[in-house]
Design a protein around this nucleic acid. Structure first.
Lengths: 245, 245
DNA sequence: CGTTGCGTTGAGTACCATCAACTGGGGTGG
DNA sequence: CCACCCCAGTTGATGGTACTCAACGCAACG
């Protein structure tokens, strides 16, 4: 297997995830990925493949590497002692498990596969040394950390303020946008491997309630789901419900 | 006014906030504050004082400085177009408005005073240049960013999974612990300037419901509130409700 | 062909929101 | 000094959102 690289500013295909252009696999890495590449750093070809529903990373596990999603869907989640579980975010191809990972020996959340997942690794210490060598790489790296923090603040607002209707509509639109940046949306239709349990765990609701709300969305002709694919049939109305003028 | 410094590893009083020792004002800065000081960086003596209920920072406002709380309470919050508002966190003396601020020209949240607040500023570019000069300072800085991200993940779990009882009990205990690190708790009693509206905005509930829950806490002898001070009367029971064994 | 996982649907319930009235303290001004 | 207002909090009545428990349908799979 060829050495992997996420930098493809020249339009090269990324050998790690197989997508093309920074706007797809490297969308979140952006400038940071380009700089890592310029400095000769690549993600290890040692790609691991994990099957759906399996655990990828266990909270608190020490690791010398930082990880990046190559293909498939996963989620970051926190487990409470009594069995409750909160999904922090969904991971798509090109996403790092954690932006600050180069400086964290262990993460405080689990990562679990939703579909079959391929992911790659890069030595944390190597990234750290590059960061302290080049201020521009550091700047690019910090932009990733800032984006992750902004996402977390956004999610706080979603969880605290949104009703179930709003929240579900926004999740669909948000995922559609992220997939769209990766060229994975065609004709308002895209892969949608989430179980209703995933959505419930992400929003702090029950699968039963998710089912009711999504049934209404379907009956109202907003969305359609077949064979693990979702098609948005009434984007305008979905955005209205989501509170996006 | 003397130049301010948050580094007080030698037991010196911090001239910015007037508290003593790293365990108080500098608790969140820790190693990072020490390193800034070793390198001759100090927070500007240009301290601004803001009165209760006033806006300190408006989301999107560009600034050359990063800010730190010197005294008083404030909160970081997001406003939705329809008037809803989500408090992201409460800021106590020694807290930075945002850990990643040196790399952010503007923040995506508001900062509002809860009590009268004093805060200080440090040039963002100066911090950035120090960070790329010294790997150990960078490491210390990243630990702040990581702590902030962890807090956000923690809050996501609180908002998504906790009932009102749990959530309020945990907020009280969490604040008590943070204040305790600053030497601001005596005999399980501490300043508590939050309006029930603040608590409601932090948890996505209504002030009316906060009132009911806290009334029960008071009637059950868990807490006591007089003159803007809270006293925890039954720590064990409060921890049990909070789900802490 | 039973099993298993996932989603749907119904009935009853709990939690929290909403609306509204009222209390008490603190400030202000006549 | 008192009337007045405002703010924060309390309390009651009522309603809606979402939970719980349970039964059932359906497709995939061994």
């Amino acid at each position: 297997m060829a050495p992997a690289s996420l930098s493809n500013a020249n339009g090269l295909r990324c050998s790690t995830c197989g997508t093309k252009g920074l706007s797809s696999c490297g969308s979140l890495l952006g400038e940071f990925g380009k700089r890592l590449d310029e400095q000769g750093l690549t993600f290890k070809p040692v790609q691991r493949t994990v099957h759906a529903r399996r655990n990828i990373y266990i909270a608190g596990e020490a690791s010398e590497d930082a990880y990046i999603m190559c293909s498939g869907w996963a989620c970051r989640l926190v487990r409470l002692p009594d069995g409750r579980c909160q999904i922090l975010s969904f991971l798509l191809p090109g996403d790092l498990f954690s932006a600050a990972a180069p400086f964290q020996e262990q993460l405080d959340f689990y990562v679990e596969a939703i579909t079959e997942v391929r992911y790659a690794a890069m030595n944390r210490a190597a990234i750290r040394s590059k960061l302290s060598e080049d201020p521009r790489t550091l700047e690019a790296f910090m932009n990733l950390c800032i984006a992750e923090t902004k996402d977390a603040n956004q999610m706080l607002t979603e969880l605290g303020q949104r009703t179930a209707d709003e929240h579900i509509a926004r999740l669909i639109l948000h995922l559609m946008e992220r997939l769209s940046m990766r060229g994975m949306v065609h004709d308002q239709s895209f892969e949608f491997p989430l179980r209703q349990q995933h959505i419930a765990d992400a929003m702090g609701l029950t699968p039963v309630h998710i089912s009711r709300v999504m049934s209404v969305f379907r009956q109202d002709g907003l969305i359609e789901i077949h064979d693990g694919k979702m098609k948005v049939r009434d984007l305008e109305e979905l955005r209205r419900i989501a509170g996006i003028k």
